[in-house]
Amino acid sequence: MLSAGIDIGSRTIALVVTDGKEIVQSAVVDTGFDPAKKAAEMAAGLTQAVPVTATGYGRHSAKNGFAGHVITEIKAHALGAGRLFPGAGTVLDIGGQDMKVILLDAKGNVEDFQMNDKCAAGTGKFLEVMAGALGYGSVEDFGRDSLTGAPGTRISSMCTVFAESEAVSLVHRGTDRRDIGRALHASVIERAFGLIQRVGCAAPLVFTGGAALNPCVVQLLRERIKGPVLIPGDPQLVGALGAALSGLENKNQQ
């Protein structure tokens, strides 16, 4: 019995097919301009007919098309992280345009959650804008380089627009861009830490989403929470995996 999950995010769309034990197929693509169409194409490209469960901010558009069920990205991440790391206490997900923290109970159910406000502060988008402002060709380079930055520099604003102008004025003052980079990453972690504290952090913490691929974010997060941080092999697939797993649950109930 196979089940597919599709996580339609603002920056990427992830697809996972699972039999409940293994991931038998997966893909991550850029969302592009027409998320609904892109997602439909991915679903249509499945090698065999499997029930699809959609999650992510584009989930409702999928519901009207190819997806049989929808669940929120909160539940999806809880299910996915719980499967990869049984006994996980908290999930931190930093995606393209949102950030969420989910507290899990002993059975892996959602006990509480927090999401960032409507702006892009502290999300993947934020880092993307800052990478551009500091002249990096990619977020990957930005993350890798910032890892070697020295602590001490501070960015006081969380707002993408203000933080960018702060960063630019630090450049003009001659501050090493690796230090500025580190400070910008630290501000993302501060934001995440604020959310984590609001739900109360239960160890261990699972870190998911595209930002978990960024070594500087990971390093600073470890330092900040002073506890174990578990990172899935492919952190961008966790939501889609959770959606696929929930599709199996639905089947079992029927």
Binding site: T72, I74, D98, D117
Partner: peptide, 14 residues
């Protein structure tokens, strides 16, 4: 609205 909907749906799931 999109954000609120996600939060409200997640609360209802919870």
């Amino acid at each position: 609205v999109g954000q609120l909907r996600t939060r409200i749906e997640a609360f209802l799931e919870m």
